[in-house]
């Protein structure tokens, strides 16, 4: 036990991670086994910015996982903690057969940025299938931005759909890979300033991302490239970015 705590503290101190067993640019219904720990490191970068996130998941029950998140980013040329997050994922439906499972979960996430922007409370429903060859995930959520610095940024709807395919026969004792194509998007409501809706706000965007999920037993590496394809009104176009996640289950 002491060894495990030391290992976790060590990881907390030196690594910054996030979740591998989900779409890279969205959510998924997978929960951790009861009593399991899952430290993860996520790196995301584009031409102008570098972000990393360390997260630690814990399987509170067989259906309920709690995840603490610690994101870092380059802001004004400085690399620092950009906030903290707490995520709860509760699986309320599971149907399984030989080599296949369908699940659905409810995700609640509280993100508290460190830069004075308002906290973001998100709720999402996510469902999906995991099978020997074919995967899919579908999620939709609503983000409620609680105003910071006297302004009230617009609320946000998020959605994603991903399909994945495992081209090889799976064997628990050998490395495994699944390839995904992920689509994700946002719809932003108008922001308000002193009770007035801002005309120059709101809109939507959409992006596609090919990604992979490489695992060996309890180690997982996930990576992908996201391409912003569409944006409307005042929503920013998603810049092309790269993302990597390393996760271990212990």
């Amino acid at each position: 036990m002491k060894k495990r705590i030391f290992f976790l503290l060590l990881l907390w101190g030196v690594a910054y991670a996030a979740q591998a067993h989900e779409p890279l640019y969205g959510f998924g219904p997978h929960v951790l086994f009861k009593g399991g720990f899952a430290p993860h490191l996520t790196l995301k970068w584009n031409q102008n910015e570098f972000e990393s996130e360390y997260a630690l998941g814990y399987g509170l029950t067989r259906n309920w996982t709690l995840i603490a998140e610690l994101p870092w980013s380059t802001t004004d040329g400085e690399y620092r903690i950009s906030g903290t997050g707490l995520r709860s994922k509760y699986r309320f439906w599971l149907k399984a057969g030989k080599g296949i499972s369908h699940q659905a979960s409810l995700i609640t996430r509280l993100e508290m940025p460190a830069d004075g922007r308002g906290s973001l409370l998100s709720m999402a429903v996510t469902t999906g299938q995991e099978a020997l060859h074919l995967y899919w995930f579908a999620s939709a959520g609503y983000g409620l931005r609680m105003g910071g610095n006297g302004s009230a940024p617009g609320h946000r709807m998020i959605y994603n759909f991903s399909i994945g395919y495992r081209p090889y026969k799976v064997n628990y004792y050998k490395p495994d890979i699944v390839f995904f194509l992920e689509s994700s998007g946002n719809v932003f409501a108008r922001s308000s300033e002193n009770g007035q809706n801002s005309e120059e706000s709101g809109g939507g965007n959409f992006a596609l991302a090919p990604s992979f999920f490489l695992t060996y037993r309890n180690y997982a590496l996930r990576g992908g490239i996201q391409y912003g394809l569409w944006n409307a009104a005042y929503a920013p176009k998603i810049e092309r970015n790269f993302k990597l996640t390393l996760e271990v289950h212990i």
């Binding site: 067993h21 086994f33 030989k98 995991e130 495994d176």
Partner: peptide
Amino acid sequence: DGLSCPFCTYGLE
């Protein structure tokens, strides 16, 4: 039932 992904299977092992 539901055994499909080696990464999830670790918890069972």
